[in-house]
Design a protein around this nucleic acid. Sequence first.
DNA 1: AATTCGGGGAT
DNA 2: ATCCCAGAATT
Length: 359
Amino acid sequence: MHRSYHEAINSKVVFQNNVISWFKNNKRILPWRDKRDKSNYPYRVMVSEFMLQQTVVKTVIPFFNKFIKKWHDLKSLSQASEEELLLHWQGLGYYSRARNLLKTAVIINENFDGIIPTNQEDLIKLPGIGSYASAAILAIAFNKPAVVIDGNIKRVISRYLGFQGTLEDNKNIIEEAANTLSVKKNNEYYSQGMMELGALICKPKSPLCSQCPVVKECVSYKLKIQDQVPEAKKRNKKKKLYCSSTLILDNNKNILLKKRETKILQDQWDLPSTEWKGEEIREVFKPFPQLDLEYEKSKELYNHIFSHIDLKTRVYFSKIKSKERKLNNDLYKWVSLKKINTYPTTLICRNILKNYNLI
DNA sequence: AATTCGGGGAT
DNA sequence: ATCCCAGAATT
C-alpha cells in the first residue's frame, strides 16, 4: 500500500470531522430528512431507504412525497393493498421493493408492536432490508453506530484511499476501510455526509476535488488518479428479446388488459402478450382465436429499454364492437382509457398506447 | 460468484 | 452509447 494510504488512515478523525461539518453546512433539503413530525420520522426514513435503492435522489423525491401523503404512518401502510401500492410505485422500478415494503410494514405492525426495530439483527431479517438499508436506518433514523456502505461510500473510500481496480475487486478492503473510518457518535451526519459527498462532489465522473472537504489526505488526488479510481465495471451485454402484443379496443374506448404473471413486472397490467423470446415471433399472434378478430399488424417494433433487456414489441391492433365478456376474469380486464391511471400498468403498455394516441 | 430484478439521470 | 444510482434476493 502506498505511503499516503497510511497517512490518510492515520488522519481519520480529521476526515470524519471534515465530512460531518461539510454535511452540516451543505445539507440538501430532502423530504425524508424532515424531523418535524418526530413520531413518524423513522418510518419516513425507512420508506426512503426502500425507494432509494439503486435510484437517484431526484427520481425518488416526487414518489416519496406522494407516497407519504397517501400513507402517512406505518399503521396505514400496513393496511394498504398490494395493487394500490404498485400503483404508487408505478414508474419507479424494482417493484419487489414495493411488495417487500408492505410485507415489512405488516411484520413490524404485528410482531414489533408497530415500532421499527433499533438493532441490525432484527432489521436485516425484514423483507427488502439488507446490509445497507439496515445500517442506513440505524444511522439516519436513530443516530446509532452502524457501518453504512452504499455505492457512493464505496467510491469515496476507494478514491480517498487510492484503491485501484473495480469496486467488486476491492469489496473486502473497502468494507474493512469503511469499518475503520466509521464513527460512533454523529453517525447520522457522518453516514449521510459520506453519501452526499459521493453524490455531489466525489461523483463517478469528473469529481469536484477543488470543493472536496477531505482532498488534503486523498490518496487518489495526491497521485492524480482520481479519474481512474475506481475502475468502471464492465457490464453484460443486454439481451434482445421480442414479443407480440394485442391492443384490442372497443367502441366505448375500453381496452383489454392482462395481469402479468411473470417475475418481471409481476402483477402489473399489460397488453396481452406472448412470452419474451430471443427472436421475433413470425406467425400472426391471435390470442383469442375463438373471437376471430381482424388484426392490423404494426409496421414498427416498439422498443422498451430495461437495464438488462431490450424488448421489441410487435403490436396487433384490433377493434371490437363491445366488450367481450368471456375475457373478463381475474387475469383479463376491460379498462376504460380514461381510467387507466387508476391501474398499475407497465410503462411498455402506456408508451404503446401513447403512440396510438389513445392516452 | 453471477444474475435478476426498472427506469432514468448524467455525460 | 455507457455508466451509474443511498441494493436485495435468488440462482
